[in-house]
């Protein structure tokens, strides 16, 4: 019950990501999974624009809180 349920047994070597990766994984899953049945309300809620909006809100608030450490590092 304990060991098998721990959602994150392995972490990346460094926790440099601005937000906990598991939360992102979690949102990907609870918001973005295929809908097996349609609920009375879920149709309106699970539509893509709202999901995007929610993720945007989350990511925006996160990047405000935790400024990126590499101000001017270019792309790859």
């Amino acid at each position: 019950m304990q060991g098998t349920r721990n959602p994150v047994p392995w972490q990346g070597p460094e926790a440099t990501a601005p937000i906990g990766v598991p939360l992102v994984d979690l949102l990907d899953r609870v918001l973005g999974t295929g809908v097996v049945i349609s609920g009375d309300l879920v149709i309106a809620i699970a539509d893509v624009p709202l999901v995007r909006l929610s993720l945007h809100a989350l990511l925006a608030s996160v990047s405000e809180r935790v400024p990126a450490p590499w101000a001017d590092s270019g792309p790859l």
Partner: peptide, 28 residues
């Protein structure tokens, strides 16, 4: 909300196979 949802889903799958629903699957 996501964590509350996930908490129940995870606790359920610990007791046996379960198909998780997306967040906010609601009925009247």
């Amino acid at each position: 909300c996501a964590r509350a949802h996930h908490g129940v889903v995870t606790a359920t799958t610990a007791d046996g196979p379960a198909v998780p629903m997306p967040l906010a699957t609601l009925y009247l």
